[in-house]
Design a protein around this nucleic acid. Structure first.
Lengths: 344, 344
DNA sequence: ATAATTAATACAATCGATTGTATTAATTGT
DNA sequence: ACAATTAATACAATCGATTGTATTAATTAT
């Protein structure tokens, strides 16, 4: 069975293919009656518009490319959910690609997205991405780029959607203080990553604001795996048996600490209140459930996609350093629900 | 800056665009010297091949469409990872779409994939998908379809990659028996879904094989949320205080049961051993960690993609009911590690 | 040295939809 | 009723790459 094109329809109806095209696109240059006839015939013949041809002619693909390090990470998949929802509403398709944290693959992906003439690109760069020539190349091809979450410095012509890590950490720490904690520890991550530096800053700032002295020995650094959490919990308790609150830079390490506290009979949250960071899906499932900071991947995705589509719609006036900073949200759960110390 | 096409390159080098095209495609109809010249010029001019034009002409998009209910579910995102890896190796692009469990959206997606002339479609149908006209329509357009995980009955011309749920459940139950459990409960899901029926069957079969009488009252049914797990745990213990093993049809409900057992002082695994199903990322993080059945999304994705690409490569000889059934794997963790009862 | 063969490149049609311009048909005004 | 205007449709070029066929150049054979 041959592929049905507008030309077949035109022939069958004895009209010109341009009329068919206009009818299918609901142009006002064609009568309602003709439209009806065309639509009918199209359905009858099982016509499926060829987007390749359409896109080629219009020089628009109505498609945006999304590049993330790894699709199976919850944060990214929820980001994608947000992007998809937004794009979908405006009739855009989404091509999703994963760099697997490798610059080389990321470069290939970008090359490919350009070749496919996407209308724009959303990217959260890989850990291996130090330089951004491949991204600059997008702009050369008049394809706007918006970073979300992980971004590169020095690209003023690209939009950015970031989360305020410092604020998130501040809120987490403040929450612990408001729950009556006086001796609050902090598990930090590799200082090479900006997010962990910012979270540490937020922690410090909250302490300062509430007149709690900052003590370096309350801050431990690791890769924040579950085992690290356990080890750090052990270590911090040995040094500070009076610990009554803990703010972890991610949920995984919080779960590790959790486990250790339980084995030695410390109760959570009665003896030690815990707040994590990220709101991983499992943090609602722990016992007690884990208070944490929600980065809302969905929100980030929506914001990034909105920013990108706005610029596409504006006919690609280059994005001059437009940066959206989102506020993370505290998700209060069991691990921090201790009776507030009565002050009066 | 104008978009560079093969024609610009041709003009610049004073050759014909067909020669440029062939040079770029490394055809043997053009001299090595000319190829070199063309490649050089192409790079110099910043040429980016227009895939839309190429695909239109070749009537191939080198792209496959993937449709899943929800990208943020770990199982699906790991499936996609497997698909991507396989497709990528063979030079195929992947368009990922989510139906959000709605037939209507799924239909739109399929429509769109056909319009974009994808070379094939991989789909795990939505819960709302009862009929498959939209999928039949793919075959009408000579686009092969392969189901993975969730499939529709009555489509002999589409490939299928499934997991043997019954076997998985059998292994889970057998494992509990081998760990010395005698009174094994089972949390089942909505019986409308085949997977839960099959898991129940596997549970029964294991009991039978090991001469343990099947008792209906040891099987509870729910939607398998965390709260359901907690409730069911409470209920089953009330009726059967001698419960010493529990096989849950998913990890989430297992975590719920977990929590309840702990609050009433039942130890896991010493008093009650637990096995879940799915190997969600959080199941390695619970305390103790959860023994479970791994469905290996990656494997399924790879298998499905391989099957599809095989048929695309074969020039779309229709897939006559090729079905691949994968074996789930038992992941032994803490929640089932009790000393094996000495028999002698 | 010329015919025969092969290699290298040029020409032109094609993929299917879109769109500016031209043409014909229908409507309105006077 | 005829010109003027507007509505509806037809024509033809275009998007950029591919590919079968034709042509020219280079090589080999006789």
């Amino acid at each position: 069975m041959k592929n049905v094109t507008i030309h077949e329809i035109a022939k069958a109806l004895n009209v010109n293919s341009s009329t068919v095209s206009r009818a299918l696109n609901d142009s006002d240059r064609v009568t309602a009656k003709t439209k009806r006839k065309v639509l009918e015939k199209a359905k009858e013949m099982g016509y499926q518009r060829n987007m390749l041809a359409s896109n080629l002619r219009r020089k628009k693909s109505n498609t945006i490319g999304v590049v993330v390090p790894r699709i199976s990470r919850h944060f990214f998949s929820s980001t994608i959910a947000g992007i998809e929802e937004t794009a979908y509403k405006l009739g855009f398709n989404v091509i999703i690609c994963q760099s697997l944290e490798e610059l080389e693959k990321e470069e290939l992906i970008i090359e490919n997205l350009i070749a496919n003439r996407v209308d724009g690109i959303l990217i959260s760069v890989s850990m291996g991405t130090k330089k951004g020539e491949h991204l600059a190349n997008c702009l050369n091809n008049r394809i706007p780029v918006v970073f979300f979450d992980r971004h590169l410095e020095g690209f003023p012509d690209m939009g950015k959607v970031l989360i305020d890590d410092q604020l998130g950490a501040y809120r987490a720490t403040e929450h612990l203080i408001q729950k009556g904690c006086k001796k609050i520890g902090h598990f930090s991550g590799p200082k090479s990553l900006l997010i962990y530096k910012n979270r540490l800053e937020g922690y410090k700032m909250a302490l300062k604001n509430y007149h709690i002295p900052y003590d370096e020995s309350y801050v431990l650094t690791s890769k924040l795996m579950k085992e690290d959490g356990l080890e750090m919990a052990k270590k911090i308790l040995k040094e500070h048996s009076d610990l009554d609150g803990l703010f972890c830079s991610n949920d995984t390490s919080a779960v590790g600490a959790f486990g250790y506290f339980k084995t030695i009979g410390k109760r959570v949250p009665e003896d030690i209140a815990i707040v994590g960071f990220s709101n991983e899906p499992f943090s609602a499932l722990t016992e007690p459930s884990l208070t944490t900071i929600d980065q809302s991947g969905e929100e980030i995705g929506k914001a990034a996609c909105t920013l990108l589509l706005k610029h596409i719609a504006s006919g690609n006036t280059l994005i001059t350093n437009e940066t959206v900073i989102l506020n993370p949200k505290l998700i209060e759960r069991g691990s921090s629900q201790r009776q507030t110390a009565t002050i009066f």
